[in-house]
Computed example of a mutant assay.
Amino acid sequence: MKIAITTSQGNVGQHLTRMLIRAGVRPLLLSRDPENIATAVAEHVDLVQADSHDPDQVVSATAGVDAIYWVDPSTDSPDPLGDYRRATESIVASVEANRIERVVFQSSVGAEKRHGAGEIDGLAETEVALDACDVDVTHLRCGFFFTNLLLDLASIKSGRLQTVLPLDSPMSWVAPRDIAEVAALILLNPEWSGRHVRAIHGPEDLTWSQAATIISEELGREVHVEHISDAQMRVQYLQMGMSPGMADAILGMSAGLREGFEPEQNRSVLTTTPTRLRTWIHEELIPLL
């Protein structure tokens, strides 16, 4: 079985690559910058340069592939949803041209809304497009990544986190390594077909208030979280250098998932994964502070 991985240096892809290597697979990594792949990893993979926004490059790179882990790459352009559409065109063209048998797609909780969830709308479009293809596909509807906290290290150091989400509304938080484990098991299992949706909810639902308490306890110092308005957060995003389109797309995710949103998939043994926020803080957050 020839398995391809996109965004192999991403939060999930870096773990998935190593898991497949340990399973005895030599994965094919599609990368815009293959020279950045660590030598220790490069020895055990096949590398090809390809931009996921370029259908011709992706079609050429995935010739002979049996299964692919597809991620719509992150973007910071004036038209992020347009970039998602171009990525969707790439995976659809590759499935159709190369008769790829299986796709595992990294989607998100909220994609089931289809419209009205900002950046997640781009993932929803990819889901719909893959569902229309003659391919076996599993959509991974992932919760809030623990690693999103790494984007705000300065705030954590200052003891003051901010969010536009309600502080006491629980949501699923998940470690990217756990997403990679689920993806690896699905990719290595030849006994499934058709269309599937697998939510990945992490070990427990947490509110932002609970998360701040856990962070404070594990760091041994107080980290407060406060609710701010969308307008205040948008100003901060623009000051960070985001394009207006990207700032609106990110804010749209929060707005779309906070007003009476109910996930399509309920928490179950299938969606619950083991790594707790406390564990992740010790393994990945504290070393960076």
Rank of each mutant, 00 (worst) to 15 (best):
I3M: 00
I3G: 00
I5C: 04
T6G: 09
N11E: 11
G13I: 06
Q14M: 14
Q14P: 09
H15F: 15
L16D: 03
T17D: 01
L28R: 02
L28H: 00
L29R: 09
L29D: 09
L30I: 03
L30S: 03
L30P: 01
N36L: 14
T39Q: 12
T39G: 04
A40M: 09
A42N: 11
D46S: 13
V48C: 05
D51H: 02
H53W: 10
P55V: 06
Q57T: 03
V58T: 02
V58G: 03
S60G: 13
A61G: 00
A61D: 00
A61C: 05
A63V: 15
V65P: 06
Y69I: 09
V71T: 11
V71L: 10
D72I: 13
P73L: 02
S77M: 02
P78Q: 07
P80L: 06
L81F: 07
G82Q: 00
D83H: 01
E89H: 12
E89Q: 15
V92Y: 01
S94F: 02
V95A: 07
V95K: 09
N98E: 08
I100G: 06
I100W: 02
V103D: 08
V103T: 08
V104Q: 03
S108Q: 15
A124E: 04
T126N: 12
L130E: 04
D131Q: 14
D131M: 13
C133K: 10
D136V: 11
D136E: 12
R141S: 14
G143S: 02
G143E: 03
F144V: 10
F145V: 06
T147D: 10
T147E: 04
L150Y: 12
L151Y: 15
L151G: 15
D152H: 12
A154W: 11
I156S: 06
G159Y: 04
R160Q: 14
Q162Y: 06
T163I: 11
L165P: 03
L165S: 13
P166K: 11
P166C: 10
R177C: 06
D178E: 13
A180L: 09
E181H: 12
A183M: 00
A184M: 08
I186Y: 04
L188F: 03
R198Y: 09
H201G: 10
D205A: 13
L206Y: 05
Q210D: 11
A211L: 14
I214C: 02
E217W: 04
E217M: 11
L219D: 08
L219Q: 03
R221L: 09
I228Y: 06
D230Q: 14
V235T: 11
Y237R: 01
L238D: 00
M242N: 01
P244F: 06
D248N: 11
A249R: 03
I250Q: 07
G252P: 00
A255S: 13
G256Y: 09
G260V: 05
N266F: 08
R267E: 04
T275V: 04
L277P: 01
T279W: 06
W280S: 05
I281P: 02
I286L: 14
P287A: 08
L289D: 02
